[in-house]
Computed example of a mutant assay.
Amino acid sequence: MRLRAVAAELPSREVGNADVVDLIAEHSADTFTGDLDALLRRVDVYLRHTGSRTRRWLDAGERPVDLLRAAARTALRRAGLEPGQVDLLVYTGVGRGFLEPAGAYHAAAALGADRAHCFDLLDACMSWTRAVQVVESLFLAGHHRTALVVNAEFSMRPGGAVVPGAFRLPAAKALASTFAACTLGEAATATVLTADDGEPWRFSFRSRPDLAPLCNVTLDNYRDFCDPTGKEARNGVGVFTSFGLEMHARGREEALAALAALDVPPERVDALFTHASSSSYWQGMADEAGLGPVVHHVYPRTGNVVSASVPTAMASGIEAGLLKPGQRAVGWVGSAGMSFGAFTFVL
């Protein structure tokens, strides 16, 4: 499989850490019990510790489908392809407007990809990585030749899965399940992949289903589809709930093990692209794995863009000349589920 092109589009509204702190102050003023000012100072310290500076959110009049369309057109143009040449379109990630049909059909219609077979793939922040692995398997089976993987991670609009629910805190202890929301950004990406007889991509995954309660966006009837632990909807049904600090702490060894299983010598890696949940966290793990000098972070300027994290970083790195044809890249992701994955390919 060959990566022909990858593009990312960010919305225009730039949101700084101070803006997020102000949101918490606004939405928690009537509900918080305790010293709200002390909590707000702690949020600011935590954000700076993760490496956060800014993120982008939709501004008035902007729509996810328009940014998705722009990313896809850019990627296809860079690949020298027309929409009608795409024979497989996969919509992936958490942000979506449809439970039925697959969002891939609406994306294909918006792009004019009239020949494309369509389906969605959802696996939280691991979604894009899983989709790429599935696409390669379909290529190897001879079912498709040209694929477009797209996502539109936009959850920060008022009334969405994050705002204002995850910013309305009743007490300081609620920060454990809400802080991850403070790091979120928005983005749309498009990745063009084609069948190729060159070196196959290699993937490594590890799963910890016992940690599934740590990060959820629930539906009304979620209790009938799991054995509830009390964590799944801590911030309310339908509201993003994530015990991010615990996830990072408990996932560290699993993530390192997934990377080690690739068995790629650090000196052979030209660029490392990680999940954008915290640049300080991933830099520390990259240093431990001997890949610190080649990691490319987008988190400080984009925030956590969920399943768009790795393709956004790849698009940024390629545009900056950090990864060139013939060079080896490694991708590295930790996700709700929990799952941990790493992959490698030559551009």
Rank of each mutant, 00 (worst) to 15 (best):
P164C: 05
A161Q: 11
A188E: 11
T183I: 08
G160I: 01
E153K: 12
V163W: 10
G165F: 02
P158N: 04
V192T: 10
V162Y: 05
G159Y: 09
A166Q: 13
A187G: 06
T191H: 09
G185F: 01
A166K: 10
L175R: 10
D196V: 08
T183Y: 02
F167G: 00
A152S: 15
T189L: 07
A174N: 00
L175M: 13
W201K: 08
T189F: 09
V192S: 06
A195E: 12
F167W: 09
G159P: 07
S155W: 10
V192F: 06
G160W: 04
A187M: 02
A180N: 12
A171L: 00
L175K: 09
D197V: 13
F167V: 04
A172D: 14
P164S: 05
P200D: 11
K173C: 11
T183K: 13
A187T: 04
G185E: 01
V163I: 10
G165P: 03
K173T: 15
A187R: 00
K173S: 15
G185K: 04
A161L: 12
A187F: 03
A195N: 07
F154G: 00
A180C: 12
S155Q: 13
F154V: 00
R157G: 10
S177K: 06
A152M: 09
L169K: 00
L193C: 02
S155N: 13
T191F: 04
F154H: 14
C182L: 05
A181H: 07
S177T: 08
T178M: 01
T183N: 14
S155A: 14
G160K: 07
W201S: 11
A181V: 01
E186L: 07
G165E: 03
P158Y: 05
E199I: 13
P170S: 06
V192Y: 03
G185A: 07
A195G: 04
R168W: 05
D196G: 05
V163T: 15
P200R: 11
K173P: 01
R157S: 14
P158K: 08
T191Q: 04
C182F: 02
A172K: 00
F167R: 03
A152I: 01
F167Y: 12
L184W: 09
V192L: 03
T191K: 02
A181E: 06
G160T: 05
P170H: 09
A171E: 15
A188R: 08
R157C: 11
G159C: 07
S155L: 14
P164L: 02
L184N: 00
F154R: 06
A171V: 05
E186W: 07
E199K: 13
A180F: 12
A171K: 12
G198R: 15
T194M: 08
D196L: 06
T189H: 12
A195K: 03
F179N: 01
R202N: 12
A166S: 15
T194A: 14
A161D: 08
A187S: 14
A174F: 00
